[in-house]
């Protein structure tokens, strides 16, 4: 009963704190800081998508960047062709989700083992990287949108007021949307994991054979989780694309590897951890980049190794452990 009450208080605090932060931060921070944090939130949503797929579905996907990149391209192409970003939202979610469903069908129904699944997802991502890199000519266009090869689609439209393609939203409004979308995704994942589907998904991560012997179709559950994760990564791609630009680098090894590191550092098997890990590491990387004497990617590798060796469960479980231990100590002192 007490645990349930604390959980409810935690959810409410997170929700109210998040909403207050969404509206409060742009009022005090500079425009540059607001835009930078919007990017970080988009990438945090990207990390959350892998946290669900890998941390709870047990699917080690080395190609989450494929869905991120597809979401970004789908958004840009739809926004340019419609002249309005309203319908670009569902497009950016459905295209990568459909791609994840098709890819997942062959992987899960083909009963690929975890190692091959990692190899296939990584290979597909690199194929997409090569594919979009070789679309430089004017003949590579979808409607009015030129794919632009290596340079991508630099004139990606920012978000606009629904059904009014000329009324672009301000960076502050887009920041609010990014926070709310991330919160909605987080609460959506928390809800999903409390449903029967979510509990079965976790049981499949723990022991797929036992789940199968209980009568649960492991393939269907994994495919559904993979598809939802693909749609979430696509949504992250949308938020990133409308703020920055769209190019084949979104499918690159950099994004593929970074998102895995964010999840490990934040805490595999948690949802909040990868969000914090992603945002924290992005700021650390940006700061290291300003120093000039150290390669940020090398530093990221060192951070990963340090976490794997000394904090293998990640940042968030460590934080929870410290707080729980602290509360026990306080309670012990209070009663003695």
């Amino acid at each position: 009963m007490r645990a349930r009450r604390w959980r409810l208080i935690g959810f409410l605090a997170l929700l109210l704190g998040g909403v207050a932060f969404a509206f409060g931060f742009p009022a005090f921070a500079s425009l540059h800081a607001t835009i930078q944090l919007t990017n970080a939130l988009a990438l945090a949503l990207f990390a959350l998508s892998l946290a669900l797929v890998w941390g709870f579905g047990g699917i080690l996907c080395f190609g989450q960047a494929a869905f991120f990149g597809l979401g970004a391209y789908a958004y840009a192409i739809a926004a340019i062709n419609f002249g309005d970003t309203t319908f670009a939202w569902p497009t950016a979610i459905l295209v990568p989700a459909a791609f994840a469903a098709a890819l997942g069908y062959f992987m899960f129904y083909g009963r690929l083992s975890d190692v091959y699944l990692g190899v296939v997802t990584l290979t597909v991502t690199l194929i997409l990287f090569q594919l979009f890199n070789s679309t430089a000519g004017p003949e590579y266009r979808i409607g009015d949108a030129r794919l632009g090869g290596f340079n991508g689609i630099p004139s990606t439209p920012p978000l606009n007021v629904p059904f009014d393609g000329r009324a672009y939203l301000s960076p502050e409004s887009i920041f609010v949307i990014a926070v709310l979308v991330l919160l909605a995704a987080l609460f959506g994942c928390l809800w999903l994991l409390r449903t029967r589907f979510g509990r079965v998904l976790v049981s499949i991560r723990e022991n797929p054979l036992r789940a199968e012997l209980l009568g649960y179709d492991v393939r269907v559950h994994k495919l559904a989780a993979f598809t939802i994760g693909g749609g979430m990564a696509g949504l992250a791609g949308l938020l990133f694309a409308q703020n920055v630009l769209v190019n084949p680098a979104l499918f690159s090894l950099l994004y593929t590897a970074q998102v895995i590191i964010w999840v490990i550092v934040g805490g595999l098997g948690t949802l909040v951890g990868p969000i914090l890990g992603s945002i924290g590491l992005q700021y650390v990387m940006a700061w290291l980049g300003t120093l000039g004497w150290i390669n940020p990617n090398l530093a990221l590798g060192v951070i990963l190794v340090a976490f794997v060796l000394f904090v293998p469960r990640g940042l968030w479980p460590l934080l929870v452990k410290v707080v729980t231990h602290g509360r026990r100590l306080v309670r012990g002192n209070g009663t003695s």
Binding site: S203, N207, R210, E212, L213, L214, G215
Partner: peptide, 23 residues
């Protein structure tokens, strides 16, 4: 497949205990 057989009303216990250790 095993899940379809289980759904027909077959309960299966394997040789090595097959449980959800993390739950």
């Amino acid at each position: 497949p095993s899940h379809a057989i289980a759904r027909l009303g077959v309960g299966i216990k394997t040789q090595v205990p097959s449980v959800f250790d993390g739950l």
